[in-house]
């Protein structure tokens, strides 16, 4: 059976959820061979094996952390040459897309970014993508070289499918370009204790209507009651009320949770681009004409300062 390379996104050995989803999709195309790089690379093996990786190629050279992107491209290329896979799958993070794109140029392959689904087809993998702020759905494939495809978080269910997951050291000789861009300092993002925005099953977002950084406590309280992640519109971020890392939309994170709750957000096209594919959408807005109401499964026209606390209280009561 053909092998499929899966690039592993992990933090010090803890595999991030989108990679496990990628393994589900990879199994539709062939046998997943995972590539884990950097500090803790070998620690990823158990989780990867449990979700279907037949092999885990690892390398924990310091270069991966000390220089931007290119060392990872060198390593993925080394894995590509060793495995000769039928496809290369990479999680659609900003970095993942850059790694995939540079690999594609090197191996003279076409690239598809931000797939939301993947199936085997007669002429290679068929990728589903969303276009124009998710108002269109397209199906595409690669017509030249080995398909290189990046896949968005929440595109498939995580499924257990135990496989060998044998760890093998990946030999990498770094290119001259590898040391081109130095990472001179790194500040890890502080954990909020809430789920990752892109991975969360429920996202609770606030916009300009929240009217102040301190008022985001209302949004956070609702998020806590539902075990949700907190999002924000660009207007709220630009006003300095919430960190940019929580921005949902075209220039922020793209989310596709089971439930999205927008409070005090009008629903501009650039915001919709990042949340339109959510399964259930709920909005609270005092303006009945706000475009967000075109998207909702349930909408409340009202003042968020009344509705959200009442909702939070009721959720907490129902949870008992």
């Amino acid at each position: 059976m053909a092998e499929v390379l899966v690039y592993v996104d992990h933090v010090d050995g803890a595999v991030r959820k989108p990679t496990l989803e990628l393994l589900t999709l990879a199994r539709r195309l062939g046998e997943p061979v995972a590539v884990a790089l950097g500090n803790g690379a070998a620690d990823t093996a158990a989780a990867l094996a449990e979700h279907g990786a037949v092999k885990v190629l690892t390398n924990d050279a310091a270069e991966f952390a000390d220089y931007l992107v290119v060392p990872k491209v060198d390593a993925l290329q080394a894995a590509y040459e060793a495995v000769q896979p039928a496809a290369v799958l990479v999680p659609s993070s900003a970095e993942g897309k850059e790694i995939a794109a540079r690999l594609a140029v090197r191996i003279k392959s076409g690239i598809i970014t931000d797939a939301v689904d993947l199936e085997a087809g007669d002429e290679g993998p068929v990728a589903t993508q969303s276009a124009f702020a998710a108002s269109f759905t397209t199906k595409s494939r690669i017509t030249q070289g080995t398909p290189v495809i990046t896949v968005k978080p929440n595109s498939a269910a995580v499924e257990a499918a135990p496989a060998a997951g044998a760890v093998e050291a990946l030999a990498v000789s770094f290119s001259d370009a590898a040391t081109g861009t130095k990472v001179t300092a790194r500040t890890p993002r502080e954990s909020t204790g809430r789920p990752e925005l892109t991975e969360a099953a429920i996202v609770v977002s606030g916009g300009r209507g929240v009217n102040g950084a301190e008022n985001f406590a209302i949004i956070e309280a609702l998020a806590n009651s539902l075990g949700a992640a907190v999002g924000a519109s660009r207007a709220a971020v630009d006003a300095g009320w919430y960190p940019h890392s929580n921005q949902v939309g075209q220039t922020g994170k793209s989310v596709s949770p089971q439930l999205y709750i927008a409070s005090g957000i009008s629903g501009a096209i650039q915001h919709r681009a990042g949340m339109q594919t959510s399964k259930t959408i709920v909005a609270i807005n005092k303006d009945a004409e706000a475009p967000i109401f075109d998207l909702v499964d349930y909408g409340v026209v009202g003042d968020l300062f009344e509705v959200v606390p009442q909702l939070t209280e009721e959720v907490n009561t129902r949870k008992g």
């Binding site: 494939r141 499964d297 909408g299 409340v300 026209v301 009442q310």
Partner: peptide, 29 residues
């Protein structure tokens, strides 16, 4: 090196329920 075979407009979301808050909006939600 890549080819789009199909492009379909996403079906409009089915119209949801919209209620006006008369004091019970949070509970209804």
């Amino acid at each position: 090196w890549s080819k789009v075979d199909e492009a379909a407009e996403r079906p409009a979301r089915t119209a949801g329920t919209i209620v006006k808050d008369e004091g019970e909006g949070g509970k209804q939600l």
